[in-house]
Design a binder for these strands. Structure first.
Length: 271
DNA sequence: CAACGGACCTGCCTGC
DNA sequence: TGCAGGCAGGTCCGTT
């Protein structure tokens, strides 16, 4: 479910609720996520105050004194701010409880997400240490993408989705950014020129910022911290629109598989 | 090494 | 209506 805009939407939603609040209890109903929830998670968190709620790539970082809770939402995860009194729904796997009236609840039907603890700098955690640049950081540039991709035979779409090159771009926004940049998803990354990469970097910034402004994309089950969906779906140009007319030129949108992922594109606008 | 396929899960939709 | 099959927003890991 969540790509960068959905994770950032979640971060912005939960931060004002939990920041500066003290964890009073941790409830783990189902520890079997992508990696097991640490058995001593309560010992790590209870009594500690949330000092910062940050994001790196699609990871949320809840910093407390002495360590950081690293949260990934996987494909189907979400975090909700609720009350400890509210009875858990199916797949509500973990609660962080803050006193009598506040509960941060982790929900994840497919259990591809994770909650991990690190006492060290989370940016040095093995899952985070090798990640590429943030696409909304001003330092992210088409020039770097161009340089790094020389010699790569991979198609540009899976290249763009590889966190080593740039983080946060999943299957929806990869298709959308390539459409906006006029680049065919199957074009070899190493055979894509500097001008195209500059257009692509700008398209990535644009599409992610716009999605963020609309609270993310909800296809099936993405909901923000308050349980509300995102509204970017209506802005999608190609994703999920196979056979429908291109909004720019009316040609039917096509779909192909790249690296086992559905890729949508306009055969006329994208070369 | 880069590149690829498989794996992890549940839920939902389609078609027989 | 029931059931099998395919597909889904991610990404790590083992094998070529």
């Amino acid at each position: 479910m969540p790509e960068l805009p959905e994770v950032e939407t979640t971060r912005r939603g939960i931060a004002p609720h939990i920041l500066a609040n003290r964890v009073t209890a941790v409830v783990v109903r189902e520890p079997r996520l992508r990696w097991p929830v640490p058995e001593d998670l309560a010992d790590c968190l209870v009594g500690r105050v949330i000092r910062a709620v940050e994001r790196r790539a699609k990871y949320l970082l809840l910093r407390v004194d002495g360590g950081t809770l690293i949260v990934h939402l996987g494909m189907s995860g979400s975090l909700r701010v609720t009350s400890p009194e509210m009875s858990p729904r199916k797949h509500d796997h973990v609660d962080l409880i803050f006193g009598d009236s506040l509960c941060l609840r982790y929900h994840d039907p497919r259990r591809f997400g994770c909650l991990l603890w690190t006492p060290d700098d989370p940016l040095n955690h093995p899952l985070l240490a090798e990640l590429g640049p943030e696409p909304l950081d001003p330092a992210f540039s088409g020039d770097d993408l161009y340089r790094a991709s020389r010699g790569s035979k991979v198609a540009v779409k899976p290249y763009l989705m590889d966190g080593k090159h740039v983080v946060g771009i999943g299957n929806i926004y990869a298709s959308e950014a390539l459409f906006r940049a006029g680049i065919h998803p199957q074009r070899a990354a190493g055979a894509t020129g500097l001008i195209r990469y500059r257009a692509l970097a700008q398209a990535v910034r644009d599409v992610l910022s716009e999605a963020l402004e609309q609270g993310g994309t909800t296809l099936r089950d993405f909901v923000n911290e308050a349980g509300k969906p995102g509204y970017f779906q209506q802005t999608l140009n190609v994703y999920g629109r196979e056979g429908e007319p291109c909004k720019r030129c009316d040609s039917p949108i096509r779909q192909l598989k790249l690296g086992q992922r559905a890729s949508f594109y306009c055969p006329r606008c994208q070369r």
